[in-house]
Design a protein around this nucleic acid. Structure first.
Length: 472
RNA sequence: GGUGGGUUGGCCGAGAGGCGAGGCAACGGACUGCAAAUCCGUGUACACGGGUUCAAAUCCCGUACCCACCUCCA
């Protein structure tokens, strides 16, 4: 059985055949660090993290490059508005993004290059394109360099569009373009822009066009040909189309497979960056834990559009807690931590089929139910098998509750620990009284004590090993 | 104008010619002093109209509505 992936370029699910046996090279377009990340922004991070984990589980040696764009029009505009240097804004938002990723257990890629660190590579590539007749410096004095789409016959192949069917951008400044669809490889510095936002080039000081950075960085770290290129659906055109055109026009084969994750929207609309911070990662994490948010995102197929709602998020969290509590009870029954086991066959089949996480989770729930039944019996070997399998499947999805990543994000402070210990002592006294009452079959008194504890926001649960308490 | 995606039960969300994925919620039962958790059970869902077929949520034709992209959106 091989991994099969949906390839946007061919519009079909194809067997994954890497360029080099046993290795997988992956480039994902990361974010433009211009504002605080919201739930929509991090979906690709989660989805491609799952892909990366699955490739690794299937034995591939994965090289995973995910860039960040740290210079662009919006960064310049926002930093000017906020009265701070553009690089300070970009850096601060980059730190926020890292926090969001780590709160969601999105593993660090092999390397995370930034656009501003790669202007020499871009310049070399642009020169190559000019030499091959696929690019030209603008005829005006702007210092811009454009890609000549008419010079590249297969332009439009990724998104299956003909150049003449494309609507020329109504608002685009034609500047020195030969064709309105030509796109900027290099943007000459404008007087209004800060000197620090420009780099030397053969065409004068300027800054990267958006698309060239990814071509240059993918080429640098993965070579002229690599296996998978990913990103959000919105990037198919123009970004990915242009990346492919310029990379191929410069002589590289570029990506063999193109994968695109769908959007998370609210109220049917895309999550605009101007929406405010109600859906920023820190604010959502006040409602649910990071692992629960990740579960919510992993539970839908990556190519399916998700309509975000807190109701659906809470429901998903309830489902995750069921799996989690099984693992906790299994660990208690086994008297030990549950070791990572083997995913069940249905899970593997589902994941191989274009990362079918919904079907994979269905399989995971089947094993969880079996495990819950075993919990009632005394076959510890079977229980260990089920629990280990559940843990292994969660681990592949980046959802293993025992992953230290979660502990880091939910770290308890010393004060909290001391408070917990203090409450435990106080509640323990009451619970002793209640246990005595229960032994005396004085149910009224037992319930009264439980109600009293509950009025303090603490839930008491009776188990065969005695009562336990949790904060509501 | 071009390109692509969607409409599934109370809710979320898979599937892609025949057998009701799964989760959440609800209801019934078992267990429990009562709860909680767990297990067992309960559903005649596929936007609308035609068509093909022994058989259609799934294929074809048409219609409606929604969404994305069309040169610096995740």
């Amino acid at each position: 059985m091989t991994i099969r992936l949906y390839d946007t370029a061919t519009r079909e699910v194809r067997d994954f055949v890497p360029l080099e046996e046993g290795k997988a090279s992956l480039y994902v377009c990361g974010l433009t660090v211009q504002s605080e990340p919201h739930v929509g922004h991090v979906r690709s991070g989660v989805n491609f993290d799952v892909l990366q984990r699955w490739l690794r589980f299937r034995g591939y040696d994965v090289t995973f490059i995910r860039n960040i764009t740290d210079i662009d029009d919006k960064i310049l505009a926002k930093s000017a508005e906020q009265g701070r240097p553009w690089y300070n804004l970009a850096y601060a938002m980059k730190i926020e993004l890292d926090r969001a990723y780590s709160a969601l257990n999105v593993a660090a890629p092999t390397y995370e290059p930034a656009a501003t660190g790669h202007t020499p590579e871009m310049i070399v590539m642009i020169e190559e394109l000019i030499a091959r007749g696929h690019a030209y410096p603008a005829a005006d004095a702007s210092g811009d360099v454009y890609f000549d789409v008419r010079s590249w016959p297969s332009y439009g192949e990724l998104t299956h569009q003909g150049i003449d069917d494309m609507e020329p951008a109504a608002d685009a400044d034609p500047r020195g373009k030969r064709d309105p669809r030509d796109f900027a490889l290099w943007k000459g510095r404008k007087e209004s822009e800060p000197e620090t936002a420009s780099w030397p080039s053969p065409w004068g000081r300027g800054r990267p066009g958006w698309h060239i950075e990814c071509s240059a960085m993918a080429g640098k770290y993965l070579g002229p040909a690599f296996d998978i290129h990913g990103g959000g659906v919105d990037l198919r055109f123009p970004h990915h189309e242009n990346e492919q055109a310029q990379s191929r026009a410069a002589g590289g084969a570029f990506a063999s497979y193109w994968m695109h994750n769908a959007w998370i929207t609210t109220a049917g609309e895309k999550m605009s960056k101007s929406l405010g911070n109600t859906l920023s990662i820190p604010s959502v994490l006040q409602r649910v834990r990071g692992v629960e948010l990740r579960y919510y995102m992993a539970a839908a197929h990556y190519r399916s559009h998700v309509e975000f709602s807190f109701e659906a998020l809470e429901e998903a969290a309830a489902g995750y807690r069921r799996i989690e509590s099984f693992l906790e009870r299994a660990a208690a029954a086994l008297g030990d931590d549950v070791p990572l086991g083997v995913p069940c066959a249905d899970f593997v089949t589902a994941m191989d089929d274009d990362l079918g996480t919904p079907a994979a989770l269905a399989a995971l729930f089947e094993v969880t139910r079996e495990g819950n039944k075993l919990l009632a019996g005394d076959d510890l070997t079977a229980l260990r098998g089920s629990a280990g399998s559940v843990r292994a499947m969660l681990d592949i999805l980046g959802l293993d509750p025992a992953d230290p990543a979660w502990a880091a994000s939910g770290a308890t402070t010393d004060t909290e620990e001391r408070l917990t210990a203090a409450v435990d002592v106080l509640v323990a006294g009451l619970l002793d009284e209640r246990t005595q009452a229960r032994a005396d079959k004085d149910w009224a008194r037992a319930d009264a004590i439980r109600d009293r504890i509950k009025s303090a926001g603490i839930e008491v649960t009776d188990t065969p090993d005695g009562p336990t308490w949790t904060v509501n």
